[in-house]
Amino acid sequence: MSSNMIVGYIFITVGAIFDFFGCMGLVRLPNIYNRLQAATKCVTLGTIFILAGTAIVTADPAISIKAGLCAVFVLITSPTGAHALARGAYLSGVKLWEKSVVDKFKERAEEIKSQRGEAR
């Protein structure tokens, strides 16, 4: 077992642990926005760590380059998907958690809804 394999397996293990805590946040946290936040962050970083570990362990250019491309792709698309989902959830009528402190998005959401009502 060479040194690059040891480093790569450490990366993969750290990534899997981050994935696990992210999904634990998905189960434990009280409201959709908090869940989205915790899960998106942890699972994105965990998957990037696993991809980096794959690239290091195999040390084969055909696999490593594809793993790097896939990591870049996940890093770009995951936040985009997260804020599309957050916007969709708010506009579909899910309220913030009842202990939330401040909500500045309410008037904007009503503006969007009234514009859409006029368009129809």
Binding site: D19, A39, T40, V43, G46, L51, V74, G81, L85, G88
Partner: peptide, 17 residues
Amino acid sequence: APDRSVAIDIFGTVVVG
């Protein structure tokens, strides 16, 4: 329904790993 959508999104990323 949004809860389920979030879980589906996260599930996809875990499967990539």
